[in-house]
Deep mutational scan, measured.
Amino acid sequence: TEHYTFHTEEQAQRAAKKFKKQGLPVTIHEKNGKFTLQVN
């Protein structure tokens, strides 16, 4: 499991699309105004 932190939801969504294209499951969590992208 890898985690990436982004300052905006837009950045997180863009990164999520790249991972999803590779067939990886992705979840985004919002915490304290930051967005954490979790790749399993």
Results as ranks from 00 to 15, higher is better:
Thr1Phe: 13
Thr1Trp: 13
Thr1Ser: 10
Thr1Lys: 10
Thr1His: 14
Thr1Gly: 11
Thr1Asn: 10
Glu2Tyr: 12
Glu2Val: 13
Glu2Gln: 13
Glu2Thr: 12
His3Pro: 07
His3Leu: 11
His3Lys: 10
Tyr4Thr: 04
Tyr4Lys: 04
Tyr4His: 07
Tyr4Ala: 05
Tyr4Val: 05
Tyr4Gln: 05
Tyr4Ile: 07
Thr5Asp: 06
Thr5Tyr: 12
Phe6Glu: 00
Phe6Leu: 02
Phe6Ser: 01
Phe6Met: 01
Phe6Pro: 00
Phe6Val: 01
Phe6Gln: 01
Phe6Ile: 01
His7Val: 09
His7Arg: 08
His7Gly: 09
His7Trp: 11
His7Tyr: 11
His7Thr: 11
His7Ala: 14
Thr8Leu: 04
Thr8His: 04
Thr8Asp: 06
Thr8Gln: 04
Thr8Ala: 03
Thr8Phe: 04
Glu9Arg: 14
Glu9Leu: 15
Glu9Gln: 11
Glu10Arg: 09
Glu10Met: 08
Glu10Gln: 09
Glu10His: 07
Glu10Val: 08
Glu10Phe: 07
Gln11Leu: 09
Gln11Ala: 13
Gln11Arg: 05
Gln11Thr: 05
Gln11Ile: 04
Ala12Tyr: 01
Ala12Arg: 00
Ala12Pro: 00
Ala12Leu: 03
Gln13His: 08
Gln13Leu: 14
Gln13Ile: 13
Arg14Asn: 10
Arg14Ile: 10
Arg14Lys: 10
Arg14His: 08
Ala15Lys: 04
Ala15Pro: 00
Ala15Val: 08
Ala15Met: 10
Ala16Leu: 07
Ala16Phe: 05
Ala16Ser: 05
Ala16Trp: 04
Ala16Cys: 08
Ala16Tyr: 07
Ala16Met: 07
Lys17Ser: 11
Lys17Ala: 14
Lys17His: 09
Lys17Ile: 12
Lys17Val: 11
Lys18Asn: 08
Lys18Glu: 13
Lys18His: 13
Lys18Gly: 06
Lys18Leu: 09
Lys18Phe: 14
Lys18Ile: 11
Lys18Tyr: 15
Phe19Arg: 01
Phe19Ala: 04
Phe19Ser: 01
Lys20Thr: 10
Lys20Pro: 02
Lys20Gln: 14
Lys21Ile: 09
Lys21Asp: 15
Gln22His: 10
Gln22Ala: 13
Gln22Met: 15
Gly23Thr: 01
Gly23Lys: 03
Gly23Asp: 04
Gly23His: 04
Gly23Arg: 03
Gly23Pro: 00
Leu24Asn: 04
Leu24Trp: 09
Leu24Pro: 01
Leu24Cys: 07
Leu24Ser: 04
Pro25Met: 15
Pro25Ala: 15
Pro25Glu: 15
Pro25Lys: 15
Val26Gln: 00
Val26Glu: 00
Val26Trp: 03
Val26Tyr: 06
Thr27Leu: 08
Thr27Asp: 05
Thr27Ser: 10
Thr27Glu: 09
Thr27Pro: 00
Thr27Arg: 07
Ile28Gln: 01
Ile28Leu: 06
Ile28Ser: 00
His29Ile: 15
His29Lys: 09
His29Phe: 14
Glu30His: 10
Glu30Leu: 07
Glu30Met: 09
Glu30Ala: 08
Glu30Ser: 09
Glu30Trp: 08
Glu30Val: 09
Lys31Phe: 12
Lys31Thr: 10
Lys31Trp: 12
Lys31Leu: 13
Asn32Leu: 04
Asn32Ile: 00
Asn32Asp: 13
Gly33Lys: 02
Gly33Tyr: 01
Gly33Thr: 00
Gly33Leu: 01
Gly33Asn: 04
Gly33Phe: 01
Lys34His: 13
Lys34Trp: 11
Lys34Gly: 07
Phe35Thr: 03
Phe35Leu: 03
Phe35Ile: 05
Phe35Asn: 02
Phe35Val: 04
Phe35Asp: 03
Thr36Ala: 06
Thr36His: 15
Thr36Lys: 05
Thr36Val: 15
Leu37Gln: 02
Leu37Tyr: 02
Leu37Glu: 02
Gln38Arg: 06
Gln38Ser: 12
Gln38Phe: 13
Val39Ala: 03
Val39Asp: 02
Val39Arg: 01
Val39Phe: 13
Asn40Ile: 14
Asn40Arg: 06
Asn40Pro: 08
Asn40Thr: 12
Asn40Ser: 11
Asn40Asp: 11
